[in-house]
Design a binder for these strands. Structure first.
Lengths: 334, 334
DNA sequence: CTGAAAGCGCTTACAG
DNA sequence: CTGAAAGCGCTTACAG
């Protein structure tokens, strides 16, 4: 900054004021400083600013997984919003139990970011308490946290509408498939199932637990086995509701392998509206992941700026049923 | 830190030395300082340390896209390696031209990270020069940069083996489909095509440019049109090689829609070994994205520590042909 | 083994 | 509107 000041023939104070966009700088001076900064490709040292202001200019994301459609899309939504605010993005991903313990032990984000976005992270009560006592603004993303700023979709309502769509098509036997893995999406998962069950109840359909299936994640052939179990039931389902699109894709593959026509013999519905859902013609419930990310950043900014009420705002974004070729009325004889 | 010093009855210098684990502190003093730090639940302000040491404890990633399989997988590979080294991860994603210009104009990473990982970013010569003059350790990921530390796979060789596999199956007319979008993967893309062409030449097959197809990215129905053009050729291809798995998935969808049997009428091959490739039975060339990420971090650490020769190391990771159900000999009459 | 002091690169009263 | 100076919380020679 001293170099810039020297080149522009002003003091560092003035450079600082100019670069921070304060209005108390004359136009000519501003122009000179900006030119000098550009010529020297000056980049500010955040550490120094941080030391004075107590702000880091960084927002951290805490997530259990880097490799899901949702997280990628949410990050992609955050990026422009952060850039616009001049904030950098710090990513903490804690996959296994050990990393997780380590993170909550050391809480490295504490002094390294102005806010922490907790993305679809199923926290234990102890972890939750630890974060609460952090003295650092928190924003919960893809999960609602009582009395804390949160942005999410109404999973239960979305699932309810999904199941209702299947019921409207004439389905009476509808299975729900969820992952048995620890994905961090536990909260969403539970709510989607709840919504599904409510739709059944609303339609006067009896709950049948043999139609609720927990299937292991990516590894192994669990999906094929699950399909086998479902289709060999006394009264097999004519529709399958998968908790996420990723899960539905695997389901579609298993069904194809088993030569089960979709939607001829069973209808399939997903949740997310993953890009591939359009490609594969999967009916699904779209959730606006990028917008969730963008909104989370806006909320974080409000909380950082200490805007009134921001600390307890809950923003619920809309979901949308996207009917595609994988759902149709059940086969005639069923 | 001053509080800790006061409570322990020593100077801040001693507190600093103790907390950083330097051995030049007597056991009794160390014990007193550590007790005081614990009682005050002291947390160090890293901005201050950074300002003095010049180290930020952060590694930045520069990428044109957050939403590709490769980037997610690479990040997932980086995360544990960074954590192990006590480094934080900063992500700069510059999607469009404006963001890109802005990034290279301000180079925000410059003073805010100890190293910059440039991930599958097709740099213009000007951008390349800009980074080179950054005075900041650079590691090129998924692209090789002359005289600069790089980690990547041999795309040309991989593609060559892929095409050879198709030739070995008996295919003589093999199309190559690449995206016409600015994906940042230009470098890989060019090399894959080159490898494909070399395999054809090696087998004595003539190059036919009508079999090389540039198709627009995710939007629109470009893929269907491309398939139409290929299948209506005088002498249509019996095998289609897609530049990435994501692209191959769209291709598979377009073929299904057009009622073209795979691999009955055409074989399809991808590149990446995306999780879905296994699910959909796509033959592909696996590249170890997570290992690329991990290796990039190790390389970055070497460069930061200024290890001898690290500045010009090139690490080439292996690829592997994964034959699955989407490739088979061409139909009899062809 | 320990302390006093300089200084890292900024921001911010305080003057002018 | 601009500059000189203090100071943010650390680390690091330099003495002792």
């Amino acid at each position: 900054m001293a170099d810039v000041a020297h080149r522009a023939g002003v003091s560092v104070s003035t450079v600082s004021r100019t670069l921070r966009g304060l209005s108390t700088v004359s136009d000519t001076t501003r122009a000179r400083v900006e030119a000098a900064a550009r010529e020297l490709s000056f980049a500010i040292t955040r550490s120094a600013s941080s030391l004075v202001t107590g702000r880091t200019g960084r927002v951290a994301v805490l997530t259990p997984h880097l490799e899901t459609w949702f997280l990628s899309a949410a990050l992609a939504g955050m990026a422009p919003a952060l850039r616009e605010a001049g904030l950098d993005l710090l990513v903490y991903s804690v996959a296994d139990v050990r990393e997780r313990a380590d993170f909550f032990d050391r809480l490295p984000a504490r002094r390294n970011a102005d806010a922490l976005l907790v993305v679809s992270f199923a926290l234990t009560p102890a972890e939750r308490a630890r974060l609460d006592g952090l003295g650092m603004p928190l924003v919960f993303v893809s999960q609602h946290a009582e009395g804390r700023p949160s942005v999410y979709v109404d999973d239960a309502d979305a699932a309810l509408r999904g199941t209702r769509h299947l019921i409207n098509l004439g389905h009476r036997r509808i299975a729900f498939l969820q992952t048995s893995d620890e994905t961090g999406f536990a909260w969403s998962s539970k709510n989607r199932l709840a919504g599904h069950l409510r739709a059944l109840a609303d339609a006067g359909l009896e709950r049948d637990d043999s139609l609720i299936m927990s299937v292991p994640g990516w590894k192994g052939s669990g999906m094929g086995a699950a399909v086998g179990r479902l289709l060999s039931l006394q009264d097999p389902p004519t529709a399958l509701f998968a908790e996420t699109d990723d899960f539905a894709f695997r389901l579609l593959a298993a069904l194809r392998e088993a030569n089960v026509a979709v939607p001829g013999r069973v209808s399939v519905m997903g949740f997310d509206d993953h890009v591939m859902a359009g490609v594969l013609g999967l009916t699904t419930l779209a959730q606006p992941a990028a917008e969730i990310g963008r909104t989370a950043v806006h909320l974080a900014r409000s909380v950082i700026e200490d805007v009134d009420g921001a600390h307890r705002r809950h923003i619920v974004l809309p979901t949308e049923l996207v009917p595609r070729g994988s759902t149709a009325p059940p086969p005639a004889g069923s």
